[in-house]
């Protein structure tokens, strides 16, 4: 019934349909032609790439499997499969975690009022600065961390209560998103040192944590907007029925914002799937991910277009599969109306 109401409103006239198809078709060509070019290039010999544009295999040029064999069974086989597995594990784990933590935080930020004291925050930053100075001066980091925590708690208990000025939810949200403003080149060395001290270099965990932190702000921001569009009345009803916050979050809010969740999931997954700079520094060999292999195809002999094409193709196939599988959920649409109506 729902569907039909929807359909009656969003079915264009025949002329509108034609225009729609033309526009969508043009953009589909814009999107697909580069991919076609990748596909053709992956079957070309270096000489076919270098001596001019050839468009159609068997007609323009004789296709060769040399690049595919090099990547999948030849010299690069071990690299390819190892990095592939790492990429899958790291991106799925970090995306799931980011979505869990991030949507919980977004829920908190839309439904409760937080008032962190400005003074407490300043004291916290002061403690961090002090401990960095201490570490630079040669104090072992374990002792420093403990001392800094102790100092912070003492300060908070004694003078912390006197501060009146507090921040609000919007400030927290803005602080979260501001963490993405610094370009990664500026922070990659400190992050490297952080994980080195923790002995976590070249592990999945390091990458998962790093991507989790990098993606959380985006999840929080996107989900916050989706949650805001959900009427509060639903939760009130649930609360009257005795549901806890956790319960209404889990069984009312999350299902209702499924399109948003899926869109966010895809976006965040893609980010961790494709991240380069952190992956380069936090890994040595074991935990390397696919983007490194892609970037590495430009070495002393210039970009090896044929290898690059193969790698990019095998890299996007699973994500496209996921997009096809999840697209349905984005398309569910108008659920809010459905429940209310």
């Amino acid at each position: 019934m729902k569907r039909s109401r929807y359909r009656s409103i969003f079915t264009p006239s025949p002329l509108g349909m034609a225009v729609t198809y033309v526009v969508l078709g043009v953009w589909a060509f814009v999107v697909l032609f580069p991919l076609y070019w990748l596909f053709v290039t992956s079957f070309k010999l270096p000489i076919d790439v270098n001596s001019g544009p050839f468009y159609i295999p068997f007609v323009d040029f004789k296709p060769s499997l040399h690049a595919w064999t090099y990547i999948l069974v030849g010299d690069l086989r071990n690299d390819t499969f190892r990095t592939y597995r790492n990429t899958v594990v790291v991106s799925l784990a970090s995306t799931t975690l980011a979505l869990t933590f991030g949507s919980a935080a977004a829920y908190g930020l839309t439904r409760f009022k937080y008032q962190p004291k400005l003074g407490a925050i300043l004291m916290f930053i002061g403690c961090v600065v002090l401990s960095i100075i201490a570490v630079v001066l040669g104090v072992p980091w374990q002792i420093t961390v403990v001392a800094a925590i102790a100092l912070f708690i003492i300060l908070l208990q004694t003078i912390g209560k006197r501060f009146k000025r507090a921040l609000g939810n919007n400030d927290i949200a803005f602080w979260l998103i501001s963490q993405r403003m610094l370009p990664p080149v500026a922070v990659v060395i400190p992050i490297y040192i952080l994980f080195q001290r923790l002995g976590m270099l070249d592990t999945w965990q390091a990458l998962i944590i790093a991507y989790l932190a990098a993606n959380l702000p985006i999840v929080v921001w996107l989900m916050r907007d989706y949650f805001q569009t959900i009427p509060i009345e639903l939760e009130e009803c649930a609360a009257i029925d005795g549901a806890s916050y956790y319960r209404s979050f889990w069984s009312i809010i999350l299902p209702l914002s499924l399109p948003g969740l899926v869109a966010t999931f895809l976006f965040v997954l893609v980010f961790s799937w494709n991240e380069y700079l952190l992956a380069l520094f936090l890994t040595n060999a074991k935990a390397q991910t696919l983007p490194l292999t892609v970037a590495a195809q430009n070495a002393t002999r210039g970009p090896e277009w044929w290898y690059l094409s193969v790698l990019i193709l095998i890299m996007i196939v699973p994500v496209i599969g996921m997009a096809i599988a999840l697209e349905r959920y984005i398309a569910r649409g108008l659920l809010i109306g459905a429940i209310k109506g």
Binding site: P34, W273, N274, Y276, P291, M315, A323
Partner: peptide
């Protein structure tokens, strides 16, 4: 297009 690694 969003799914391809930026370097790619």
């Amino acid at each position: 297009p969003m799914m391809i690694t930026p370097v790619g």
